[in-house]
Amino acid sequence: MLWIKALHIIFVASWFAGLFYLPRLFVNHAMVSDAATIAQFKLMERKLYRFMTPLGVLALLFGSWLWLGYGYTGVWLHIKLALVGVLVAYHLYCGHLVKVFATDANVRSHVFYRWFNEVPVLILFAVVLLVVLKPEFA
């Protein structure tokens, strides 16, 4: 079971690298106006999203395997799973934004994407605390 845990951690860390970097690309993409740079950002965004999606799927699969293997229960786990659901929705919304930028349909400023970029940081912070501390809720 330790191999499963190790693989889960590896894929979570890899997935989060993409979740941290892709919105950062959106920040920079929203700030530029020359065609060559825009084309480069479109390519980078598309390739990164296509690469990070299987990493997220593998993180979820190995996480589910751990959950079933260890039989964890508790309110902390329900909160963690809800946060993972938010993270999956965030990932899918990033995919939507890749398409928005690909069609030159973005209407949001770089400031929006700077705030948007902080969402996975906050979720990671909360999930790590929940998993490590496993707090008891009354």
Rank of each mutant, 00 (worst) to 15 (best):
L2W: 13
E118T: 05
A13I: 15
V32L: 11
R108T: 02
V57A: 11
Y93I: 11
A30R: 05
S64W: 13
H8E: 12
A39K: 08
I9V: 11
L81M: 10
I123P: 03
E118N: 02
D104N: 14
A82I: 13
L43A: 12
P120E: 00
L133V: 08
G56T: 06
L92Q: 08
V132W: 09
F116R: 00
C94P: 04
T37H: 00
K99N: 10
F20G: 07
G56N: 03
L2M: 13
H78V: 08
A39R: 05
W15C: 00
Y21N: 02
W76E: 05
F112S: 01
I10R: 02
A13L: 15
A13M: 15
L83T: 01
V12L: 14
R114V: 04
D104I: 10
F101A: 00
G71F: 01
L124C: 03
N117E: 02
L22W: 06
A36N: 10
A126C: 03
V128D: 04
A36P: 05
N117H: 14
G95Q: 07
F137Q: 06
V121L: 09
V88P: 01
A105I: 09
H8G: 09
L60I: 13
L60M: 14
A105G: 07
F51N: 10
L61N: 03
V12Y: 09
F26P: 12
M52N: 06
S33F: 15
H110T: 01
V57C: 03
Q40N: 12
Q40D: 15
H96Y: 12
F16I: 07
Y70V: 11
K5E: 12
M52W: 02
I79T: 10
M1Q: 08
S14M: 13
H91S: 08
M1D: 13
E136P: 01
K47S: 12
I123Y: 00
